[in-house]
Simulated assay, not measured.
Amino acid sequence: MIRPIVHDPLFLAQPSEPASREDLPVARDLVDTLTANMDRCVGMAANMIGVSKRIIVIARGPMAVAMLNPKILSKSGEYEAEEGCLSLEGVRKTKRYKTIRLSWQDMRMKEHTETLEGFQAQIVQHELDHCDGILI
């Protein structure tokens, strides 16, 4: 189900709780909502649809991939980026890392660990900021 986008900075500034199997419907809604907004968005966090759970979705080509309980294990190559956000007005500067090592669970709650670089790493870092209540 496609859900409306939350724009309330007070809500978005609250850290998210860990996700569980019971939150899989939220992950599916997040995939649907990102897919409906891919013309202007490459990633979303669950709090952007009103649910404070550690779930993000990123665009990988034409697919939207859900990640539950993502966690950065390591990072390298700090740089400054300018980013916009579907939930917030304007563009802001922020620090990102070129390479991150990430752990997360898929929609079957299976654990994954992978290394992301470049734009994919930047998207995940932005969405994890959402999960941590950090507004850029």
Rank of each mutant, 00 (worst) to 15 (best):
L12D: 06
K95C: 03
E22T: 02
P70W: 00
V26T: 11
R101V: 13
S103Y: 03
Y79T: 13
Q14S: 11
F11P: 11
G50I: 13
M44Q: 05
G90P: 12
R92H: 13
V65Q: 10
K53A: 03
K98W: 05
L73K: 05
E83A: 15
R40P: 00
S52Q: 15
M67A: 05
R96K: 12
V26Q: 05
P70E: 09
G77T: 03
G84N: 11
R92P: 00
S74K: 14
K75V: 05
I72H: 02
G84Q: 12
N69T: 09
S52F: 07
E78K: 08
A81E: 15
F11V: 05
V57S: 09
L24G: 03
K93F: 10
V91P: 02
R40C: 01
S16M: 02
Q14N: 11
S20Q: 08
E22C: 00
V26K: 06
V65P: 00
S20G: 10
K95D: 05
E78F: 01
D32N: 12
R96M: 07
V91E: 13
E89D: 15
E17Y: 02
V51S: 03
I49M: 06
L12G: 13
D32T: 09
V42K: 12
C41D: 09
N37G: 00
A45I: 02
V57Y: 08
A66N: 10
N37F: 02
R28A: 06
Q105I: 06
M38W: 03
K75G: 09
C85M: 09
A46G: 10
P15S: 03
M38F: 07
G50C: 13
S103T: 15
K71S: 07
G61P: 07
T33V: 14
G84F: 06
G50N: 14
S52K: 15
D32F: 04
N37Q: 04
I58Y: 10
N69E: 05
L30C: 10
R21E: 12
S87Q: 11
E80P: 01
R40V: 01
T35Y: 12
I55N: 00
R92G: 08
P18F: 01
S20A: 09
I49A: 04
S16E: 03
D23E: 08
R96G: 04
D23C: 01
L68M: 10
A36N: 08
P62H: 15
T99C: 02
E78N: 00
Q105V: 06
